[in-house]
Amino acid sequence: MEVTFRIWRQDNPTNKGGFINYVVDDLAEDMSFLEALDHLNEILVLRNEKVVAFEYDCREGICGQCGIFINGRAHGPHSNITTCQLYMRSFKDGAIITVEPWRAKSFPILKDLIVDRSAFDRIIEHGGYISAKTGTAPEANAILIGKGVSDKAMDAAACIGCGACVATCKNSSAALFTAAKINHLNSLPQGKPEAHQRVLDMTTQMEKEGFGHCSFTGACEVECPEGISIANIAEMNARYFKAKIFG
Protein backbone atom coordinates (compact mmCIF):
# COMPACT_ATOMS: atom_id res chain seq x y z
CA MET A 1 0.00 0.00 0.00
CA GLU A 2 0.99 3.61 -0.47
CA VAL A 3 0.62 6.34 2.09
CA THR A 4 1.90 9.86 2.53
CA PHE A 5 3.37 10.57 5.93
CA ARG A 6 3.09 14.24 6.82
CA ILE A 7 5.61 14.34 9.63
CA TRP A 8 6.59 17.10 12.04
CA ARG A 9 10.34 17.66 11.72
CA GLN A 10 12.14 19.79 14.26
CA ASP A 11 15.88 19.58 14.73
CA ASN A 12 16.13 20.66 18.34
CA PRO A 13 14.05 22.22 21.13
CA THR A 14 14.66 25.80 20.03
CA ASN A 15 14.18 25.35 16.30
CA LYS A 16 10.95 26.15 14.60
CA GLY A 17 9.61 22.91 13.20
CA GLY A 18 7.37 22.16 10.27
CA PHE A 19 5.71 19.39 8.34
CA ILE A 20 7.46 17.46 5.60
CA ASN A 21 5.68 14.97 3.35
CA TYR A 22 7.10 11.53 2.64
CA VAL A 23 5.46 9.15 0.22
CA VAL A 24 6.10 5.49 0.94
CA ASP A 25 4.67 3.08 -1.59
CA ASP A 26 5.70 -0.41 -0.50
CA LEU A 27 4.03 -0.87 2.85
CA ALA A 28 2.11 -3.94 3.91
CA GLU A 29 -1.14 -3.88 5.82
CA ASP A 30 0.16 -6.05 8.63
CA MET A 31 3.11 -3.80 9.33
CA SER A 32 2.76 -1.91 12.55
CA PHE A 33 2.72 1.87 12.28
CA LEU A 34 6.13 2.05 13.92
CA GLU A 35 7.52 -0.50 11.49
CA ALA A 36 6.25 1.66 8.67
CA LEU A 37 8.22 4.55 10.19
CA ASP A 38 11.26 2.23 10.54
CA HIS A 39 10.87 1.45 6.88
CA LEU A 40 10.65 5.14 5.99
CA ASN A 41 13.83 5.73 7.99
CA GLU A 42 15.70 3.07 6.04
CA ILE A 43 14.64 4.81 2.86
CA LEU A 44 15.82 8.15 4.28
CA VAL A 45 19.22 6.70 5.20
CA LEU A 46 19.69 5.46 1.66
CA ARG A 47 18.68 8.90 0.40
CA ASN A 48 21.39 10.33 2.67
CA GLU A 49 18.85 12.19 4.80
CA LYS A 50 18.48 12.36 8.55
CA VAL A 51 16.09 9.81 9.95
CA VAL A 52 12.87 10.79 11.70
CA ALA A 53 13.49 10.67 15.43
CA PHE A 54 10.68 8.88 17.25
CA GLU A 55 10.46 6.90 20.43
CA TYR A 56 9.59 3.29 21.16
CA ASP A 57 10.96 0.46 23.18
CA CYS A 58 8.96 -2.63 24.08
CA ARG A 59 6.64 -2.52 21.06
CA GLU A 60 4.08 -4.57 22.90
CA GLY A 61 2.02 -1.85 24.51
CA ILE A 62 3.43 -1.77 28.00
CA CYS A 63 6.52 0.44 28.29
CA GLY A 64 4.66 3.64 27.41
CA GLN A 65 7.45 5.20 25.40
CA CYS A 66 5.88 5.36 21.91
CA GLY A 67 3.75 8.47 22.21
CA ILE A 68 2.85 9.97 18.84
CA PHE A 69 -0.15 12.07 17.75
CA ILE A 70 -1.47 10.52 14.55
CA ASN A 71 -4.20 11.99 12.37
CA GLY A 72 -5.61 14.06 15.17
CA ARG A 73 -5.61 11.39 17.86
CA ALA A 74 -3.14 10.34 20.55
CA HIS A 75 -1.80 6.92 19.48
CA GLY A 76 -3.80 7.04 16.25
CA PRO A 77 -7.40 6.46 15.24
CA HIS A 78 -8.32 3.74 17.74
CA SER A 79 -9.20 4.20 21.39
CA ASN A 80 -7.29 2.68 24.29
CA ILE A 81 -4.17 1.52 22.47
CA THR A 82 -0.52 2.53 22.25
CA THR A 83 1.10 3.58 18.98
CA CYS A 84 3.01 0.31 18.72
CA GLN A 85 -0.35 -1.52 18.70
CA LEU A 86 -1.52 0.44 15.68
CA TYR A 87 -1.29 -1.38 12.36
CA MET A 88 -1.27 -0.05 8.83
CA ARG A 89 -4.48 -1.90 8.05
CA SER A 90 -6.19 0.90 9.96
CA PHE A 91 -5.39 3.29 7.09
CA LYS A 92 -6.66 3.37 3.56
CA ASP A 93 -4.38 2.94 0.60
CA GLY A 94 -3.32 6.39 -0.51
CA ALA A 95 -4.05 7.97 2.85
CA ILE A 96 -2.29 11.09 4.07
CA ILE A 97 -1.25 10.49 7.67
CA THR A 98 -0.38 13.51 9.78
CA VAL A 99 2.17 12.63 12.43
CA GLU A 100 2.88 15.07 15.26
CA PRO A 101 4.68 14.98 18.57
CA TRP A 102 2.81 15.29 21.89
CA ARG A 103 2.12 18.97 22.40
CA ALA A 104 2.22 20.44 25.88
CA LYS A 105 4.34 23.08 27.55
CA SER A 106 5.43 20.53 30.15
CA PHE A 107 6.54 18.09 27.43
CA PRO A 108 9.07 20.13 25.42
CA ILE A 109 10.00 18.72 22.03
CA LEU A 110 13.57 17.42 21.93
CA LYS A 111 13.63 16.45 18.28
CA ASP A 112 11.02 15.58 15.62
CA LEU A 113 8.52 13.37 17.42
CA ILE A 114 10.48 12.97 20.65
CA VAL A 115 9.34 14.92 23.69
CA ASP A 116 10.69 15.16 27.22
CA ARG A 117 8.24 13.61 29.67
CA SER A 118 10.48 13.86 32.72
CA ALA A 119 7.80 16.01 34.38
CA PHE A 120 6.01 12.72 35.10
CA ASP A 121 9.09 11.34 36.83
CA ARG A 122 9.28 14.42 38.99
CA ILE A 123 5.65 14.02 40.01
CA ILE A 124 6.42 10.45 41.10
CA GLU A 125 9.54 11.71 42.85
CA HIS A 126 7.28 13.83 45.06
CA GLY A 127 5.51 11.11 46.91
CA GLY A 128 4.57 8.50 44.31
CA TYR A 129 6.01 5.78 46.52
CA ILE A 130 5.63 4.12 49.87
CA SER A 131 8.52 5.00 52.16
CA ALA A 132 9.59 1.53 53.11
CA LYS A 133 13.22 0.51 53.23
CA THR A 134 14.34 -2.79 51.82
CA GLY A 135 14.37 -5.34 54.61
CA THR A 136 11.65 -3.82 56.76
CA ALA A 137 8.63 -5.64 55.38
CA PRO A 138 6.26 -7.67 57.55
CA GLU A 139 4.88 -11.03 56.37
CA ALA A 140 2.85 -10.37 53.21
CA ASN A 141 -0.34 -12.03 54.41
CA ALA A 142 -0.23 -10.25 57.77
CA ILE A 143 -2.24 -7.41 56.19
CA LEU A 144 -5.39 -8.61 54.52
CA ILE A 145 -6.66 -6.59 51.58
CA GLY A 146 -10.10 -7.29 50.18
CA LYS A 147 -10.22 -8.37 46.56
CA GLY A 148 -12.36 -5.35 45.68
CA VAL A 149 -9.84 -2.91 47.15
CA SER A 150 -6.93 -4.68 45.56
CA ASP A 151 -8.61 -4.86 42.16
CA LYS A 152 -9.44 -1.18 42.25
CA ALA A 153 -5.87 -0.32 43.22
CA MET A 154 -4.71 -2.43 40.30
CA ASP A 155 -7.06 -0.59 37.90
CA ALA A 156 -5.36 2.66 38.83
CA ALA A 157 -1.87 1.18 39.01
CA ALA A 158 -2.13 0.01 35.40
CA CYS A 159 -1.00 3.44 34.11
CA ILE A 160 2.00 3.09 31.80
CA GLY A 161 3.05 6.74 31.90
CA CYS A 162 2.79 7.29 28.15
CA GLY A 163 1.50 10.84 28.42
CA ALA A 164 -1.46 10.41 26.05
CA CYS A 165 -3.73 11.98 28.68
CA VAL A 166 -1.69 15.17 28.69
CA ALA A 167 -1.27 15.09 24.93
CA THR A 168 -4.95 14.80 24.16
CA CYS A 169 -6.17 17.14 26.90
CA LYS A 170 -6.96 20.59 25.57
CA ASN A 171 -5.54 21.98 28.82
CA SER A 172 -2.54 19.60 28.97
CA SER A 173 -3.75 18.45 32.35
CA ALA A 174 -1.79 15.68 34.05
CA ALA A 175 -4.66 14.94 36.39
CA LEU A 176 -5.32 11.42 35.16
CA PHE A 177 -1.67 10.40 35.50
CA THR A 178 -1.31 11.91 38.95
CA ALA A 179 -4.68 10.62 40.13
CA ALA A 180 -3.91 7.08 39.02
CA LYS A 181 -0.78 6.92 41.14
CA ILE A 182 -2.34 8.63 44.15
CA ASN A 183 -5.37 6.34 44.10
CA HIS A 184 -3.26 3.25 43.63
CA LEU A 185 -1.14 3.95 46.69
CA ASN A 186 -3.67 5.71 48.91
CA SER A 187 -6.30 3.01 48.60
CA LEU A 188 -3.95 0.30 49.91
CA PRO A 189 -3.34 -0.08 53.65
CA GLN A 190 0.41 0.17 53.01
CA GLY A 191 -0.03 3.61 51.51
CA LYS A 192 -2.25 5.05 54.25
CA PRO A 193 0.36 6.47 56.64
CA GLU A 194 1.60 8.92 54.02
CA ALA A 195 -1.72 9.35 52.23
CA HIS A 196 -2.37 13.03 52.95
CA GLN A 197 1.19 14.17 52.40
CA ARG A 198 1.35 12.20 49.16
CA VAL A 199 -1.69 13.94 47.68
CA LEU A 200 -0.44 17.37 48.63
CA ASP A 201 3.13 16.80 47.45
CA MET A 202 2.27 15.17 44.17
CA THR A 203 -0.39 17.69 43.22
CA THR A 204 1.86 20.59 44.16
CA GLN A 205 4.54 19.19 41.87
CA MET A 206 1.95 18.65 39.13
CA GLU A 207 1.08 22.34 39.40
CA LYS A 208 4.74 23.41 39.39
CA GLU A 209 5.38 21.47 36.20
CA GLY A 210 2.97 23.77 34.38
CA PHE A 211 0.16 21.36 33.53
CA GLY A 212 -3.32 22.82 33.05
CA HIS A 213 -6.61 22.22 34.84
CA CYS A 214 -8.79 19.20 34.41
CA SER A 215 -12.11 20.24 32.90
CA PHE A 216 -13.42 16.68 32.53
CA THR A 217 -13.68 16.54 28.78
CA GLY A 218 -13.08 12.81 29.17
CA ALA A 219 -10.70 12.65 26.21
CA CYS A 220 -7.95 11.22 28.42
CA GLU A 221 -9.79 8.07 29.39
CA VAL A 222 -10.59 7.38 25.75
CA GLU A 223 -6.96 7.72 24.67
CA CYS A 224 -5.47 5.97 27.72
CA PRO A 225 -4.05 2.62 26.58
CA GLU A 226 -5.06 1.12 29.91
CA GLY A 227 -8.52 2.71 29.89
CA ILE A 228 -8.00 4.30 33.29
CA SER A 229 -11.28 5.86 34.35
CA ILE A 230 -11.70 9.58 34.71
CA ALA A 231 -13.48 8.84 38.00
CA ASN A 232 -9.94 8.56 39.34
CA ILE A 233 -9.57 12.31 38.95
CA ALA A 234 -12.72 12.94 40.95
CA GLU A 235 -11.37 10.58 43.59
CA MET A 236 -8.08 12.45 43.66
CA ASN A 237 -10.00 15.69 44.18
CA ALA A 238 -11.83 14.15 47.12
CA ARG A 239 -8.53 12.95 48.56
CA TYR A 240 -7.08 16.40 48.07
CA PHE A 241 -9.84 18.14 50.02
CA LYS A 242 -9.63 15.48 52.71
CA ALA A 243 -5.90 16.03 52.98
CA LYS A 244 -6.39 19.78 53.16
CA ILE A 245 -8.91 19.44 55.95
CA PHE A 246 -7.46 16.57 57.96
CA GLY A 247 -3.85 16.47 56.74
Binding site: Y129, I130, T134, A137, P138, E139, A157, L185, L188, Q190
Partner: peptide, 10 residues
Protein backbone atom coordinates in the same frame (compact mmCIF):
# COMPACT_ATOMS: atom_id res chain seq x y z
CA UNK B 1 6.97 -11.09 48.19
CA UNK B 2 6.74 -9.43 51.62
CA UNK B 3 8.92 -6.64 50.32
CA UNK B 4 6.88 -5.96 47.19
CA UNK B 5 3.60 -6.17 49.06
CA UNK B 6 4.83 -3.53 51.46
CA UNK B 7 5.86 -1.32 48.55
CA UNK B 8 2.29 -1.35 47.30
CA UNK B 9 2.32 -3.88 44.47
CA UNK B 10 -1.35 -4.77 43.91
Amino acid sequence: IDHYTQQGVP
